[in-house]
Design a protein around this nucleic acid. Structure first.
Length: 288
DNA sequence: AATTTATGTCAAT
DNA sequence: TTGACCTAAATTT
């Protein structure tokens, strides 16, 4: 399920596989029929990931600018959305065949090429899928804080917001105007590695601590991108003996490990609701 | 076969 | 703080 690093992985795939190409667009499911018709036959000219938002820029057809030009496709995957990639044979790229590949849940199918060269991106379950002009994109981006996966990020913009809030750090890290792209996994794992309790009010987090936190976020999320989206925060030495490659059960220090022993000190992992979702922490490694 | 859950966000209380 | 929503996979009946 998608946090910001997944969106950046998608962006890389769009850049590698569809950027610069003339794209066919369809909405087999029908709920984005008008948008798909508007995109069909245009060239993908730009790909941007910002936090959990993906922006795809398409060429504007000459003469067809009756009214505003809408060069951008804005996609937000929400909790359950995702892109599925297919190659010429209708298989997932680098994956197993998808059950129900012809099913009716495909909101937007973007494809290019023919025969051996064909590739398709299949969007399903997204919370947002809409066309936008440049101003529409700006509205979204202007609301976002710095994205640890972007070169243009200024972590101090996030610090400025966090340090004037009394809300707990674990809540602040889910706020997209504080850190764009962070989600439930990172809001737990990064404070653990930084040794800060998620209950600590934002205004009580010092600048050096924030920088430490930011560095962990950027490193963890960057590593997940390099792994093609797979999230792993544990160091090999902190995984059970004999676990060479991280498994689902050994990938995290805290996430979904309520009551299990801390991998560093053995203290049972604590959990409680925070901002409507579960936050996990180690009361020993992350004292109040 | 039906129900629950999921790494997200927004609107309504 | 709660419910609604987008859909697929896991879990329970």
């Amino acid at each position: 399920m998608p946090e910001g690093h997944i969106v950046h992985v998608d962006a890389r795939r769009f850049t590698a596989r569809l950027a610069g190409r003339t794209v066919r667009a369809a909405s087999p499911q029908g709920r984005f029929a008008e948008g798909a018709a508007a995109l069909d036959g245009r060239r993908l000219t730009g790909v941007e990931a910002y936090g959990k938002n993906l922006f795809l820029r398409f060429s504007v057809p000459r003469g067809a600018t009756a009214g505003r030009a809408m060069p951008w496709l804005h996609v937000h995957l929400g909790l359950i959305g995702g892109w599925r990639w297919y190659d010429a044979d209708g298989m997932q790229v680098a994956g197993r065949p998808l059950r129900g590949a012809g099913g009716g849940n495909r909101r937007l199918l973007l494809s290019a090429g023919r025969g051996q060269d064909a590739v398709s991106a299949d969007l399903r379950g997204a919370m947002t899928c809409r066309l936008a002009d440049a101003a529409g994109v700006d509205v979204v981006v202007d609301r976002l804080g710095p994205d640890p996966l972007r070169d243009d990020a200024d972590p101090m913009e996030g610090f400025a917001r966090a340090s004037r809030s009394k809300a707990p750090l674990g809540t602040l890290l889910l706020r997209q105007d504080v850190v764009a792209g962070a989600g439930l996994i990172w809001r737990c794992e990064a404070p653990f590695l930084a040794g800060i309790a998620p209950q600590r009010p934002g205004r009580d987090v010092g600048e050096p601590e924030w920088r430490r936190l930011w560095d962990h976020l950027a490193r963890l999320m960057g590593a997940a991108v390099e792994r093609g989206g797979a999230e792993v925060t544990t160091e090999p030495a902190d995984r059970p003996a004999g676990t060479r490659r991280p498994t689902r059960a050994s990938a995290f220090y805290l996430f979904r490990r309520t009551g299990e022993p801390c991998r560093v000190c053995g203290t049972p992992i604590s959990a409680e609701p925070m901002a409507g979702r579960t936050v996990w922490w180690c009361s020993s490694c992350q004292p109040d």
